[in-house]
């Protein structure tokens, strides 16, 4: 093991709807880093954070924040301004990736399959008349349909809609989580997540993880109650399909300018992977997908966390050299 210097500040919590998940992820990362010999401070995003960072010895931030300012890039931009280095994508790239309305078209433009979708701010419904717009969505996108907040994770605020009369309520639900709702074609198929890690020698896809809820949808309860979902890693896919999934995830990572680690969620229909979304702060809980992918790659979670720290420290050195 390298001789780690300085303090790794694991940032978890925050004020987002996913605070609980983030706290769980943060604890897991902090433990992994302590076990690999790092000095670790765990911090929340609050009024003390800036002084915690100012007082820490050579801090390197490991953000494990899901949703809100932690994932949308705002906090990372603050770290840039402060000159504090961190693991993961830059503020700008996070901002783009977190906004499904911006990220999906960029991935589609590179030639990958994506669901037909529309990103609609609340005002659009007021200005165009909700009734007319709902009708247009129903005929333009068709059913079943997925309605979700543009900025949120863990499937909070998401509804699968089967018919036009259920659409308005689903949109109102999504607006409970933010200003923009995504209405998209529901792609029926196998649900797979591909994590990408870059330890300094370019982004590499980890084995795909397939997700099969034991019953019902992969909703919040299915995600975070152990036993409610079956995970297979590596996913049981024909080699060509597995390669296509890996390629999509790596390319999404590149196209969106992401750094260090990301997780792409996709659906496979007729052997074609469809891009759903990319996460710059993938969950790290005991029931999360990235840790499962790491395990399936034959490396330990602790090693990867430690290597991410080493890679970020290396970046600091080459920047100051």
């Amino acid at each position: 093991m390298a001789d780690p210097t300085g303090t790794v500040v694991v940032l978890a919590g925050g004020l987002s709807h996913e605070r609980e998940v983030s706290l769980r992820s943060g604890r897991r990362v902090a433990t992994a880093l302590r076990e690999t010999g790092h000095t670790v401070l765990e911090a929340d995003v609050n009024g003390q954070l800036l002084s915690v960072l100012a007082d820490a010895d050579d801090p390197l931030v490991f953000p494990v924040l899901h949703g809100g300012a932690g994932e949308d890039g705002a906090l990372r931009e603050v770290l840039d301004v402060l000159g504090v280095s961190y693991i993961g994508s830059t503020g700008r790239a996070s901002h783009i990736a977190f906004d499904k309305a911006v990220a999906t078209p960029l991935v589609a433009a590179a030639g990958f399959a994506t669901p037909r979708q529309a990103a609609l701010p609340q005002d659009m419904f007021r200005e165009l008349g909700a009734h007319a717009l709902v009708e247009a969505l129903a005929s333009g996108i068709g059913f079943p349909m997925m309605v979700k907040p543009a900025q949120s994770g863990s499937s909070l605020g998401c509804t699968r809609v089967e018919s036009a009369d259920a659409l308005p309520a689903a949109i109102v639900t999504a607006f409970g989580y933010g200003e923009v709702a995504i209405v998209e074609e529901f792609i029926e198929g196998r649900e797979v997540a591909v994590s990408v890690v870059d330890l300094g020698d370019g982004p590499t896809a980890l084995p795909a993880v397939e997700i099969e809820p034991v019953s019902g949808p992969y909703d919040y309860a299915a995600r975070y109650t152990a036993g409610q979902t079956r995970f297979s890693a590596p996913a049981d896919l024909p080699a060509a399909v597995a390669d296509a999934c890996a390629d999509l995830a790596v390319q999404a990572h590149r196209i969106l300018g992401l750094r260090d680690v990301s997780r792409t969620d996709l659906i496979i229909r007729d052997d074609t992977p469809y891009f759903l979304e990319v996460n710059v702060a993938p969950g790290m809980t005991d029931t999360s997908l990235l840790p499962l992918a790491i395990e399936a790659s034959g490396v330990s979670f602790e090693e990867i966390c430690s290597s991410l720290v080493a890679a970020a420290r290396g970046r600091e050195e080459s920047a100051s050299a």
Binding site: V214, A226, G227, F231, S232, P234, L292
Partner: peptide, 11 residues
């Protein structure tokens, strides 16, 4: 990667 056996788990 790749040499690892497939694991199917409900965790």
């Amino acid at each position: 990667s790749l040499e690892m056996p497939r694991r199917s788990t409900r965790l």
